[in-house]
């Protein structure tokens, strides 16, 4: 396969570094890495850069990272799709006078980088073609991981510019989830309403050994579930055998994150869009349907 000359990988997480290193090596003769957190390296990486104080904000290093990458003029920059990754991708792309190709799950190279992403909340597929320099934010799982190797003699980047001052950082205590690999998922939407009905949904999940997921507003507005459990175009993608939606309206931004063998819906509104996206649906109140359903399943 035809390759471009040089590329950069910009990532923090070890998983992302290993995947993007493998991806970049497919497309470029030379791969340099900016490791934003712990010093990690991977097979196929030719040079590693780290940050002087990875415990401070990545934002303090943005200028230094942009300058480094601009000087080396790579044709390809693969960036981890995290919030910091998106910020750096934008700043790097602006310096090259181009846009960022984000949320990319597939890349092809034919002299330019042609990528695929979702459009209109998952209703459409958008194919984009890069200008001279491609800056691409890649969804996790898009490449098989390269092998890890010790990170030897990295070049250490220093913070540059005075405009942004770091005050503090608080680690989040979030349980890891198994949602994306779950075989069964019970998903609650805003129709679940409160803790009491949520407990019923959790009981159902216990009975059928399912992982719990939710829609974005349940996590972000109602704060009933942690944000790493919301499913959809901007959250987790799930591919279970069974997906049970309770009080979920079925907007495309949500359903495009669900590719299930069988979709079951419980919703009190017979006109809810979820009923045209499901295999089997029941029109009813969550607080009536769930206890009866649990009793029947326990029988």
């Amino acid at each position: 396969m035809e390759k471009c000359k040089s590329s950069f990988v910009v990532a923090a997480g070890k998983g992302a570094i290993l995947e993007l290193a493998a991806g970049a090596a497919q497309f470029a003769e030379k791969v340099s890495l900016v490791a934003l957190a712990a010093p990690v390296s991977a097979q196929g990486i030719d040079a590693v850069y780290t940050l002087e104080d990875p415990n401070a904000s990545v934002a303090l290093y943005a200028k230094a990272i942009v300058k480094l990458i601009c000087e080396q003029k790579p044709e390809l920059v693969l960036v981890e799709q995290s919030r910091n990754g998106r910020l750096l991708a934008g700043l790097i792309a602006a310096a090259f006078g181009t846009s960022v190709q984000t949320d990319v799950s597939e890349i092809e190279y034919d002299g330019a980088f042609v990528t695929k992403r979702a459009g209109y909340g998952g209703l459409a597929v958008k194919v984009e073609r890069s200008a001279e320099t491609a800056v691409i934010c890649v969804s996790s799982g898009s490449f098989p991981a390269a092998g890890e190797v010790p990170c030897e003699a990295p070049v250490v980047l220093k913070a540059e510019g005075e405009g942004i001052t770091f005050v503090e950082k608080k680690e989040k205590l979030q349980q890891r989830t198994n949602l994306s690999a779950a075989r069964r998922v019970v998903c609650v939407g805003r129709g679940i309403g409160d803790e009491e009905k949520l407990a019923l949904a959790e009981e159902l999940a216990g009975v059928i050994e399912a992982e719990m997921g939710c829609t974005r507003p349940v996590a972000e507005e109602d704060h009933l579930m942690p944000t790493n459990r919301y499913i959809g175009v901007s959250g987790v993608s799930v591919k279970p055998e069974l997906y049970v939606a309770v009080g979920v309206s079925g907007q495309v931004q949500h359903t495009s994150g669900v590719s299930a063998t069988r979709v079951i819906a419980i919703n009190k509104d017979e006109h809810a869009p979820i009923f045209s996206e499901c295999d089997f649906g029941v029109v009813g109140e969550a607080k009536d349907v769930l206890p009866k359903l649990i009793a029947l399943l326990k029988d």
């Binding site: 006078g97 181009t98 846009s99 960022v100 190709q101 042609v114 979702a118 459009g119 998952g122 209703l123 459409a124 597929v125 958008k126 194919v127 984009e128 073609r129 890069s130 200008a131 495009s256 590719s259 979709v263 017979e270 009923f275 045209s276 996206e277 499901c278 295999d279 089997f280 649906g281 029941v282 029109v283 009813g284 109140e285 009536d288 349907v289």
Partner: peptide, 24 residues
């Protein structure tokens, strides 16, 4: 003028579902 070209923006194919809906 865009730098990244949109080659296409087409409907994503949808899974066929049974859509059986019953009362509670």
């Amino acid at each position: 003028v865009s730098r990244v070209e949109t080659v296409s923006l087409a409907a994503k194919s949808k899974a066929q579902r049974d859509c059986t809906v019953v009362a509670a």
